[in-house]
Write a protein that binds this DNA or RNA. Structure first.
Length: 113
RNA sequence: UCAGUCGGCCGGACGGCCGCUCCGGCACCGGCCGAAAGGCCGCCGGGGAGGAAAGUCCGGGCUCCAUCGACAUACGGUGCCGGAUAACAUCCGGCGGGGGCGACCCCAGGGAAAGUGCCACAGAGAACGAACCGCCUGCCUUCGCCCUUUGGGCUUCGGCAGGUAAGGGUGAAAAGGUGCGGUAAGAGCGCACCGCGUCGCCGGCAACGGCAACGGCAUGGCAAACCACACCGGGAGCAAAACCGAAUAGGGACGGCGCAGCGGCUGGUUCGCGCAAGCGAUAACACCGCGAGAUCGUGUCGGAUCUGCCGUCCGGGUAGGUUGCUUGAGGCAAUGUGCAAACAUUGUCCCAGACGAAUGGCCGUCACGCAUCGUCCGUGCAAACGGACAGUGCCCUACAGAACCCGGCUUACAGGCUGGCUGAUAUU
């Protein structure tokens, strides 16, 4: 599992499917190559001060680590956008949030297909 | 013990599981790639946010650009004195002014007799020293009274002329202050003290202070208004900069074409003549002189650099990567010098280097704090207050996250530890 680092990649993922949770927003985009799962984090200044943004990003990163790459689709890019709720929401609850969001992204949405 | 004041330090602790990043190690084992050297993952050992990392307000180092010189000007900053320092608007020690019983705190604290300007409202007056109400004198008019009378005195209302700056009132500020004398009433008019100014002497490196004499008050405030004076100052910043280097747009060499600002004709080129040396011609290239334009903050003088189009061949920049990147005006300790800021010497230590950005996530125990309920104890008639113990809940901690590095300043901060000093009270 690699990290997303280029601005271009972030912009590309932003146009893909998304699921919203109280603590974060998950975005996904399928790539045309055979590379591994890549994941990026976005925490804007709207969330809070630098200290708070760091904390949000670290908790999101830990969530991804515990959920693991197996529950994500191969050769896809994911972006987690942090929200202010990620600061104080219970960690176990957030884990369930993320699993649910990934599951829903996997299920093809009716209006799309 | 209470109240206060000035500093210094810390800013959760311990443990478990799972990770991130940097450095070192191949002594051990395993895996992958490679012909090898070696690299990567795993492994082993070690380091990993702050006192403000923040605001980016000053001062530097470092890097690049300008390093073009002189003079002038413009712009910006600083402004009691001495010291510290790489430097500063910082720090230390003084001086002066103001506040506090005091420890101590605060000060944008140079020049207003170089000039210009401003001083709202109120008030008579806000600066070539003013006169509203007053106070006083003289004359005139008027009301009344007294005195033994063609006069004099006192008094009421008012007018004119003059003298005043005591008092009232306005204001942020009113022309030295207080007291005594003096006077028609007053006034530095005179005197004493204080303040101010000038000069002299003494002390101090200096800011300044002390003493004495003289003057008789002249010089209102604002320079965070312009200004004058003294001193200082190039610009931009690690997204600086250096190196390696794609794809697409811009420079040097060669060829051609075209245009040349003028002149020189020095070299080359080409052409003509000649056996040759050479002579003559020649527009383009190079060179020299003058000139024009652009750039170097502005002006002057000087100076430097550059100055067509097309085709073919070679070198620079962007994306990306590496370096810069952490050993430094460094920390700690001791000793010495100094009132101190600080400096010197010796010893010792190596203490984050990320780049969509590591330094963490989850859990347990404990401490601390806050809230709430219960029990017990003390005071009290009671309401209530204080203390101790245990339970539960909350925050699982305030302010806040390195981004090239230092010295400061400013701002934010739950709570805790500790030292000096001051005042009050009590006891000895």
């Amino acid at each position: 599992m690699d990290r997303l680092k280029r601005r271009v990649d972030f912009l590309a993922v932003a146009s893909g499917a998304r699921m919203t949770s109280p603590a974060f927003v998950v975005q996904r985009r399928k790539r045309e190559d055979d590379g591994p799962v890549r994941i990026g984090f976005t925490v804007s200044k709207k969330v809070g001060t630098a200290t708070e943004r760091n904390r949000v990003r670290r908790r999101l990163r830990e969530l991804v680590k515990q959920v693991g790459a197996l529950s994500m689709r191969p050769h896809s890019d994911y972006v987690l956008v942090g929200r202010r709720g990620a600061l104080h929401r219970g960690f176990a609850t957030m884990l369930d949030d993320l699993r649910l969001a990934l599951h829903r992204l996997d299920r093809p949405s009716p209006e799309r297909s």
